[in-house]
């Protein structure tokens, strides 16, 4: 059953076609990779999916719970509420806020108490805030950040900032998670740890994951299916094994050693 179907998605900036005619299907529970050379339009696809850019044409249908919804052209916060969350390639945490506040903000959509309650700190405020804090700490524990919950996000080491990005995305309680280069800047040990983590949260949170990654070892190891983007177009789709031997993909990556990457 497909949870996300992208149909002929196109985005042009001025005369430049950043993404053209991209179609994708992602099934519930899958872990799909989106790869391609630099400038292929991968992050633009993410920005289109999450509503940061409005597509020039094409449709995006999200089906988190048996109800199809066209999400192209919706605001990012609405798309997030429907069940799509993301991390950012160039880390965009709320830098001057504490680790726990970063997570609590992402949980805001579940908050039921109203403005009046927030002005006067009525009982509903205290009850829900306590619950929010508890849930945030639980989430931080999973990502091994709970001991740093009161530190400012900007003071975390790089690897932990990436973890916090994931924690924050998870806090929005998504059904589909988009990870934009989660392993960027990590060393091999950290990357293999991250690989495990991604597999684990996917099971634990019953997630469908779409990830952009340059680290081929990670992609080939955990992705069940891969889409390859080049010049804004999908040039191949298939299992890691198929992709590794695809001629067009090898051409696109000429210079990068595909065959060694996954082994």
């Amino acid at each position: 059953m497909s949870i996300l179907s992208v149909n002929k998605l196109t985005k042009s900036f001025g005369g430049l076609m950043a993404v053209s005619n991209v179609s994708m299907e992602i099934n519930k529970g899958e872990l799909v990779g989106l790869i391609g050379p630099n400038g292929a339009g991968k992050t633009t696809v993410f920005n289109l999916l999450t509503g940061i850019y409005e597509p020039s044409s094409g449709t995006i249908t999200l089906d988190p719970n048996g109800v199809n919804r066209d999400i192209q052209g919706l605001k990012p916060h609405t798309i997030c509420k429907i069940g799509l969350a993301r991390t950012f390639q160039n880390i965009r945490l709320f830098k001057d806020l504490s680790v726990i506040d970063n997570v609590r903000i992402a949980m805001h959509k579940n908050v039921k108490y109203g403005l009046v309650s927030s002005f006067f700190h009525l009982p509903s405020y205290s009850k829900e805030e306590a619950l929010l804090t508890k849930k945030s700490i639980e989430l931080l524990k999973i990502l091994k950040l709970d001991h740093k919950k009161d530190e400012l996000a900007k003071n975390l080491p790089y690897g932990e900032q990436r973890h916090l990005e994931i924690a924050r995305a998870l806090a929005t309680n998504p059904t589909l998670l988009l990870l934009d280069e989660p392993a960027a800047g990590m060393n091999p040990a950290e990357t293999s740890q991250l690989t495990e983590l991604i597999g684990w949260i996917r099971k634990e949170f019953d997630l469908t994951i779409l990830l952009i990654e340059h680290d081929m070892s990670l992609v080939m190891k955990i992705c069940e299916r891969i889409y390859v983007l080049d010049y804004g177009m999908v040039i191949a789709e298939g299992t890691p094994e198929e992709i590794k031997n695809n001629k067009r993909v090898i051409e696109a990556y000429l210079g990068e050693d595909m065959n060694n990457a996954g082994d």
Partner: peptide, 30 residues
């Protein structure tokens, strides 16, 4: 009232806009 507000979830939503509006939107903040 204002100091209560900024220490509530709604207040944090406001602060997140100051910190990074695009990230805030992506995390479900209108």
């Amino acid at each position: 009232i204002i100091s209560n507000y900024i220490r509530s979830s709604h207040g944090r939503a406001c602060i997140s806009i100051r910190e990074d509006e695009i990230a805030a939107e992506a995390m479900g903040i209108n």
